[in-house]
């Protein structure tokens, strides 16, 4: 009993509330006879699909610059990688991996610039990051119209110039991870490849934070002066963290796109940031501390919530209420994290 209380104390209040809400929804779902297996398949797919993007929050939070509100910066890099892979006409796993490596390379470049900028505006990273994200998305919207892509699957049918809003990935690397070793248990479909990829990404990041570079990032986030006295260069540590986050975001969008089956351009990257930030916070992270557990728990809770609430709530009212609920939950969560009193001053 004591142990339970102790454990409850450690769990974040909103995490608890949202989990309880989720459990309640499950019961309602059983009651209103919504097919549970298909709900489960759906939520598993969505967890794997969004998880990597949430993972991108870890490095920047741990180094002390807060959640990466400039997620679109990395996403743009990922999109570029994916587009080049499509332009080359690569399909299947080859297309996927080429896209991943290309976008990682592009994101390192963009990340260096972005990290340099954030270093200049120390203390305002969240705000500057948000608007850098908006700006780059608007700028790239122009670029999508101007860049010399020629693959007829990608450009507008009429005029042959400018990329389409959504590009179908069926002929390229759509669902390659999802279909890899896919199996069904009792009506629940498990996209093994997708889950493996997410798990692998988590493991890599976990391992990274146990190397010297990762430890340096941690120390800078916790106590910059301690880090300096341990011989760490805090500016470099922050730069590495931002680049890493940007790269993960780039890879994350490719994973997302292959699972979704479409590549979304123009305004779409903007809608990825806040759910990702909210997810890690729901998992119990704060704007100063985060770990892999927060990523996994947060993604699982948030995505399951979204999947289950749709059929359940649509029994009561129109289905688009889930969209509104997502807005309220995710922004409410971020708001809570921002207004939480910082830990006792050190």
């Amino acid at each position: 009993m004591d142990k339970l209380l102790e454990w409850l104390k450690r769990v974040d209040f909103p995490t608890l509330v949202i989990s309880l809400f989720l459990v309640a929804l499950f019961f309602v779902a059983i009651f209103v006879e919504v097919p549970i297996p298909s709900l489960l398949s759906d939520s598993i797919r969505r967890i794997g699909m969004n998880g990597v993007l949430v993972l991108a929050m870890v490095p920047t939070i741990r180094v002390g610059v807060g959640p990466n509100f400039g997620l679109p910066v990395g996403i743009i890099g990922g999109l570029l990688g994916a587009l080049i892979s499509m332009q080359l006409g690569l399909s299947g796993f080859l297309g996927f991996w080429v896209a991943v490596f290309l976008s990682a390379a592009i994101c390192v470049g963009i990340g260096l610039g972005y990290g340099w900028l954030l270093e200049k505006v120390r203390g305002q990273e969240m705000m500057v990051g948000t608007y850098m994200g908006y700006s780059i998305v608007a700028f790239m919207s122009i670029m999508w119209l101007m860049l010399p892509f020629t693959n007829p699957d990608m450009v507008w049918a009429i005029g042959g110039k400018g990329l389409r809003y959504t590009l179908t990935l069926d002929k390229y690397f759509g669902h390659v991870l999802n279909n890899f070793l896919k199996f069904k248990v009792g009506g629940v479909e498990v996209p093994t490849g997708l889950i493996l990829f997410f798990a692998g990404a988590c493991l890599l990041v976990y391992l990274f934070f146990r190397t010297k570079v990762g430890l340096a990032i941690d120390l800078v986030g916790q106590n910059e002066k301690y880090a300096i006295s341990s011989g760490v260069n805090p500016k470099r540590a922050r730069l590495v963290a931002v680049v890493l986050s940007t790269v993960i975001a780039g890879v994350g969008i490719i994973v997302y796109a292959q699972s979704y089956g479409f590549l979304q351009l123009y305004q779409a990257p903007l809608f990825m940031t806040f759910p990702a930030v909210a997810s890690i916070l729901i998992g119990g992270a704060s704007i100063r501390r985060a770990n892999i557990r927060n990523v996994v728990i947060g993604t699982v809770i948030f995505q399951t919530l979204l999947t289950i609430s749709l059929p359940v709530l649509s029994q009561v009212t129109r289905g688009d209420v889930t969209e509104v609920m997502r807005l309220i939950v995710s922004n409410g969560m971020i708001l809570y994290a921002l207004t939480r009193a910082p830990r006792e001053a050190g």
């Binding site: 916790q222 301690y226 006295s229």
Partner: peptide, 13 residues
């Protein structure tokens, strides 16, 4: 450091 809490320690570690 003379500033144990500020420089010398990672208080939450």
């Amino acid at each position: 450091s003379e500033d144990r809490r500020g420089v010398g320690l990672l208080l939450d570690e």
